[in-house]
Computed example of a mutant assay.
Amino acid sequence: MSVEGPYCERDRKLWVFLLYAVFDELGKQPLHTLSVREINAVFRELGGEHGTSGLWESAKRLAKTTIEWEYNLGDERVQGVASLFSSEVHKSARAQGNLRFGFPPLLIPILKEPTRFARPRVHFLLKLSGKYAVTLYEVLEGFVNRRDGQCRVSIDELRTSLKVPADSYATWKNFRK
C-alpha cells in the first residue's frame, strides 16, 4: 500500500479512530454516523487535538488523500486506487451534529483481512505524538499477529515506509529517541 496526500498526524489518528469505531459495520453499510461531540470527547480525554473546525479540516485532508494497493487474487495481481475517506457534516450543526463518513468500498475487504491490515489499539495510538510515531506504530502493530512477530528492515526501508527525508534519522539511534 501507499498513501499520498496532505494528511497529518491528527488526520491519521482520526481515520484509525473512525475505522475502529465502525469496524464491525464495514461492508454492511456504505456510510456511518458518529456524534461530533463524542468524537471530540475521546480526543480530549486522550490528550489529542479536538474541536469541531479541526475535525472538519482533518476530514477534508483525508478526503484529498489517495491510497493505492496491490494484492494477489489467485494467480492474478490486483491493483487498486481510491480516496482514503469521504464525509459530510451539516454546516449549521457542526458543533453538536453528526459526522457522516465512509471508507472506499474496494478497500474494505483489505481492511477486514487480518493478514493484510492490523486493527491497532486506538486508545494507545491516540496518545502518541510525533511526526512518525503514529505511522511507526501502525507498521509495527501489523507484525504483532504474525507467526514469528518479527520486523526486519534496513534504515532505508524504514525511512521509505515512514516517508522520512533522506537527511533525517541517519542511524537507529535517531529512531530510538
Rank of each mutant, 00 (worst) to 15 (best):
G27E: 12
S58T: 01
G48I: 00
F17H: 06
N40I: 07
L26Y: 06
D24H: 13
L26M: 01
T52G: 00
L14Q: 02
R44M: 11
N40L: 08
K28C: 07
T52K: 03
L19C: 09
L55N: 06
Q29D: 06
F23T: 03
G51D: 07
G27V: 07
N40V: 05
E45W: 10
S58A: 15
S58N: 00
L46W: 13
G48K: 00
A21Y: 13
G51H: 05
L34D: 05
R37V: 15
S58V: 02
V22C: 11
P30A: 11
H32I: 04
F17P: 03
F23G: 04
S35Y: 07
E25S: 14
E45I: 10
R44W: 08
K28A: 13
T33G: 11
L18V: 03
F23E: 10
I39N: 03
W56Y: 15
E57G: 06
S35L: 05
Y20P: 00
G47F: 06
Q29W: 04
D24S: 12
P30G: 02
A41G: 07
I39R: 05
N40D: 15
H32K: 00
L34N: 01
L31G: 07
G48H: 00
T52F: 10
L34S: 04
Q29T: 12
L55G: 02
L14S: 07
F23S: 13
E45F: 09
L19M: 12
V36W: 04
E25M: 11
I39Y: 12
W56E: 14
S35C: 01
V36G: 02
D24Q: 12
R44C: 06
Y20A: 11
E49I: 09
H50W: 15
I39A: 11
S53T: 14
L18C: 02
V16T: 13
G47P: 00
V42C: 06
E45T: 12
W15S: 08
S53R: 13
R44H: 09
L46P: 04
S53G: 07
A41E: 15
V22K: 05
V16L: 14
G51Q: 05
H32W: 10
G47H: 01
L19A: 14
E38Y: 09
I39M: 09
E49V: 10
E45K: 14
G47Q: 02
P30I: 07
L14R: 05
Q29N: 08
P30T: 05
